[in-house]
Simulated scan of single mutants.
Amino acid sequence: MADLPKPKKTDDAALSARAIERFKLLKKDARTIAAQQVLRLESAMCTQRRWHPHAFRAFLATHPLLRHLVQRLVWGTYSTDGERLLACFRVTADGAFTDAGDNAIDLPGDDSVRIGVPHALDLASADAAAFGQLFADYELLQPFAQIGRDTHHLEAGERGEHALRRWEGRSVTTGALLGLLNRGWRRGEAQDGGSIWDFRKPLGAGAMASLGIAPGIVVGMMREGEVQTVGPVLVGRVGQWDTLDTSVALGALPAVAVSELIRDMEYVCALPGRHSDTDRTHDAAI
């Protein structure tokens, strides 16, 4: 966002000062909103959210603020059930739609397709390479990792399990765990003594993951450097009180959900003694 032009000598000094202050506040709000929308779009990719074409045009592709983020992502048209990726496209600076070869295409305006942000697991290698080169040519930096995002798969023998145990017993800091709040996780409810003993992540279709920690985080006495031991990542159906009910085999989860769970845990366990400045924004929530 560009700055306001400097006031002229003929401009009202008081009005100019108020306009400058208001513009500064608007810039601050725009940065905050943009950061929130980046997380929202990344979550939409990971949870495989789909939009009707008219909603995509009205609320994303032509939105005064969001269009600047939309133009830096690869988008896909999907079958009406949202499962099958039909084609990929991008949104240009003038609001047109092009394929990986930068050729203009028409986006269906009816309900014959759905629109979504393809995950790296769904992108064909040829499409990923072509759009990656196209974005490089236009000097477009993606707002989050999409093309080339690290992906993960279950190991042999894990598909029938109801929990991921690769990191069980690993030591991490409370600060590192709080970074999960930027990745779609939320803290569990405070239990006896005001302690939080788990983090939870909705996986869609009524499923949820739960990561147990010990000794837990005491509400109001959080110490970011405190060491926590992580348990297995349990998966199951969401119960009445937002807790796990019936367990679910890992192999029954969508491949994207599995990949993102593993990615989250690799992130946490790779940062045993560090956490980012962004993580500190969640301190007040504990």
Rank of each mutant, 00 (worst) to 15 (best):
Gly82Val: 03
Gly95Leu: 01
Arg84Gly: 07
Thr10Ala: 09
Leu73Trp: 01
Asp11Val: 10
Val70Asn: 03
Ala13Ile: 09
Ser79Gly: 08
Lys6Ser: 07
Leu69Asp: 00
Ala96Cys: 12
Arg50Phe: 04
Arg67Ala: 05
Val38Gln: 05
Arg49Lys: 15
Leu73Gly: 03
Ser43Arg: 13
Tyr78Cys: 05
Asp99Glu: 02
Ala55Phe: 12
Asp12Arg: 06
Lys6Ile: 09
Met45Glu: 01
Arg90Phe: 12
Leu73Cys: 06
Leu15Phe: 08
Asp99Leu: 04
Trp75Ile: 02
Thr92Ile: 04
Leu41Phe: 05
Phe23Val: 10
Asp99Gln: 03
Thr47Met: 11
Arg50Tyr: 04
Asp81Cys: 03
Leu41Ile: 04
Lys9Pro: 13
Ala13Pro: 13
Asp99Thr: 05
Ala30Gln: 12
Phe56Trp: 00
Gln37Tyr: 14
Pro64His: 00
Ala61Pro: 05
Thr62Met: 08
Thr92Ser: 05
Thr98Ser: 10
Leu26Ile: 11
Thr32Val: 15
Gln36Trp: 12
Ala55Gln: 11
Thr80Trp: 02
Arg50His: 11
Pro5Met: 01
Arg22Asn: 08
Thr32Asn: 15
Val91Cys: 05
Cys88Lys: 05
Thr62Pro: 12
Thr80Phe: 04
Ala100Arg: 06
Leu86Ser: 07
His63Ile: 03
Phe56Ala: 02
His52Lys: 15
Asp99Trp: 02
Asp81Glu: 01
Lys27Pro: 10
Lys6Thr: 08
Leu4Lys: 05
Leu26His: 08
Leu39Cys: 15
Ala61Asp: 00
Glu42Ile: 10
Asp94Met: 06
Ala17Arg: 07
Tyr78Asp: 03
Ala13Phe: 11
Lys28Met: 11
Leu65Asn: 06
Arg49Cys: 15
Pro7Lys: 00
Asp99Phe: 05
Asp81Met: 01
Lys9Cys: 09
Arg67Trp: 03
Leu41Gln: 01
Leu39Thr: 15
Arg18Ile: 08
Thr98Met: 07
Phe97Pro: 09
Arg18Val: 08
Thr32Lys: 15
Asp12Ala: 10
Ala55Asn: 12
Trp75Gly: 03
Lys28His: 13
Arg49Pro: 15
Gly76Val: 00
Glu42Lys: 15
Cys88Met: 06
Ala93Val: 11
Glu83Leu: 08
Thr32Ile: 15
Ala96His: 10
Phe89Val: 01
Glu83Lys: 11
Ser16Ile: 02
Gln36Cys: 14
Leu25Cys: 12
Ala13Glu: 09
Lys28Gly: 13
Arg67Phe: 04
Ser79Leu: 03
Thr92Ala: 03
Ala19Thr: 09
Pro5His: 02
Cys46Lys: 14
Thr80Leu: 05
Arg22Ser: 09
Ile20Val: 12
Pro7Arg: 00
Thr62Asn: 14
Thr10Gln: 09
Ala44Thr: 07
Leu60Asn: 04
His63Trp: 01
Ile33Arg: 14
Ala61Ser: 04
Phe89Lys: 00
Leu4Gln: 06
Tyr78His: 04
Arg49Met: 14
Arg18Leu: 11
Ala13Ser: 10
